[in-house]
Nucleic acid binder design. Structure first.
Lengths: 134, 134
DNA sequence: GGACAACGTCACCTCAAGGTAACCACCATG
DNA sequence: CATGGTGGTTACCTTGAGGTGACGTTGTCC
């Protein structure tokens, strides 16, 4: 799903312009990348309430696999959204926290979540209607 | 920005109540899942500038396959984001336009796009650093 | 000694999203 | 006649995101 957005530059210009944004490069590509994977947004929003350790995150998001937790955290770290700090305690503990960049994305995510929260009922209804018509 | 953050955190709290739940039980996650496919957002933003016909959309988004255009439009229609109107002209033409629901999602998308535009440079830099360190 | 909790890595497999290309009907134009 | 533009459908295939489960290392506790 990631690589294919790479070529959408042309229209991104178009609709970026519509939203009143400078054209240049395609910023949306990266964002859609993040949005469209299954766990990044969930992880960011979970870390929004404060730094957490690895198994603490596992407990708070029971349906994420260990592999995907590791992998998504690495990706977020790579993107500068999350910082990883290892404490040299007896069993070494690792703390993940949002960076300033990571915190800044909470705002647009928040809008999206609010939108979803306000409209999922309408969407469900629309789906039901549509499916019944078919 | 300050107000926006606080506003966002309200919904983050709501959200966190649902985080532990499987996707099926979290309506927000369900909705966001739909939004996060490869073409939905692009299509919505393309239709943001006005109603368009099928092949008009194909031309504006050259790298979408016919199949995926049809499919994504159907999904959006099913979710009540897009309405489809067939005109009984000589070669019947079909017009797609955003519904009120579809238009309402432009706002949160817009915030996301703005965020991406403001921060993609930082992200790129962070990635480069991270990759070099490894 | 055995279990468990800390934080992972690795190999393997599945499943569906998405791409490709062929096909349909209809009509206009050259 | 043939090409091209309407708006699709269908069958087939590839890709990779994500899940599963085993293994590992260092310690502590019972």
């Amino acid at each position: 799903m990631r690589a294919a957005l790479e070529e959408a530059t042309v229209f991104v210009e178009k609709w970026s312009a519509n939203v009143g944004l400078p054209v240049g490069n395609c910023p949306v590509r990266g964002v859609l990348d993040k949005i469209s994977d299954k766990w990044s947004m969930l992880l960011v929003m979970t870390l929004a309430s404060g730094p957490k350790r690895f198994n603490q995150l596992r407990r708070e998001i029971p349906d994420i696999s260990q592999k995907m937790l590791t992998q998504t955290l690495r990706d977020l770290q790579r993107d500068g959204m999350v910082s990883r700090q290892v404490f040299d305690t007896k069993p070494p503990s690792v703390e993940y926290r949002l960076t300033a960049l990571g915190e800044s994305v909470i705002v647009p995510f928040g809008y999206l979540i609010r939108w979803a929260d306000e409209n999922f009922a309408d969407i469900d209804r629309s789906r039901a209607e549509f499916d019944q018509a078919a």
